[in-house]
Design a protein around this nucleic acid. Sequence first.
DNA 1: GTCTATACTTTGATAGAC
DNA 2: GTCTATCAAAGTATAGAC
Lengths: 195, 195
Amino acid sequence: MNDTRNRLVNVTAVLFQRQGLAATGIKQILSDSNAQFSSLYHHFPGGKEQLAAEVIRASGIRYQELVEAVWDSAPDVLTGITQVFEGAAETLEATDFAVACPIATVALEVATTNEELRVVTAEVFSSWISSGTDRLVAAGIDLTRARSLTLILVALLEGAFILCQAAKSTESMIAAGSAAVAIVSDALESSVADP
Amino acid sequence: MNDTRNRLVNVTAVLFQRQGLAATGIKQILSDSNAQFSSLYHHFPGGKEQLAAEVIRASGIRYQELVEAVWDSAPDVLTGITQVFEGAAETLEATDFAVACPIATVALEVATTNEELRVVTAEVFSSWISSGTDRLVAAGIDLTRARSLTLILVALLEGAFILCQAAKSTESMIAAGSAAVAIVSDALESSVADP
DNA sequence: GTCTATACTTTGATAGAC
DNA sequence: GTCTATCAAAGTATAGAC
């Protein structure tokens, strides 16, 4: 799977994560991918927008799988959530705060400027939220509350990414992780008390 | 204060909020401001980057004042926090999810691409965090905990903005507001119990 | 599917008259 | 301080040979 098409997607994913959509030029994508104009427009007749849609989807799936792997390898829910936030903080620090959410920058850019791509980012977030909700339901939390909690968890993670990248500090991610654990912990206790 | 220089800053602030930095061209700024190239480079010899720095600072101050006004007009801390998140949700809905955080898109764009502007965004967030921390301290929470709580509040707000704009739904902002109130409420109770 | 070359637009920025 | 005109570079996209 290291053909030209995949190289284009993977290279663009990295550039989108660091620079966003508008700042990433096709010429830079081609240069970094060792590819030609003809290859890009052969594989993506829709040009930059079609490539972007595929990159957003691929990045979303990859990040979801990463988080699920961390979460599911933990012995319990609270440990899983702790490790997701700790892992995010470690990655930020290890990459000099370059690697955070793979789609947040693009999501904000397209939210009011490109309806097709906005929908793609919404689908990615929706998939993440379903994944988290499933896990909280499996831990004994009722569906409505599990969904609401997952929205909070994702918001904490995304918001902390912004603050951490701007400040070049993991302080916010640490605080967000503590809050995430506290909130889910409360929900678990009231689930046990009122099943 | 409706001279050319101020028009440039105000117009650019709106464009940055909706499109981000890279997607906003100087020609669009000039067109929307009814200004000329010569005016822009007269007032901002440093070009787009200098204008961007001033716009980020101005947007940061304006938004901080808005939030402080909402917070301080409430009878107590928890009501204030509730109304900040409710106000954000109302603004999102009233503007078809176009008006969210004024600097988040730019902050993510510049975080790894423009060190000078990254520092400016960091200063804005730092000022917001100080403002929130002051208010929680005034409510009786000790400084360390107040700062940590404020980081969580800002992360919740910023993360919810992303999710709401992508989904075109205020669901995440509602959930984030509930979480914010719950977390600060807990802190207030333990402050009273253990002063 | 890939190569070279190119078309056309928009970008940020500057020059020089007034 | 403002006007018109213009620059060099980078932007996306396409054509046509192989």
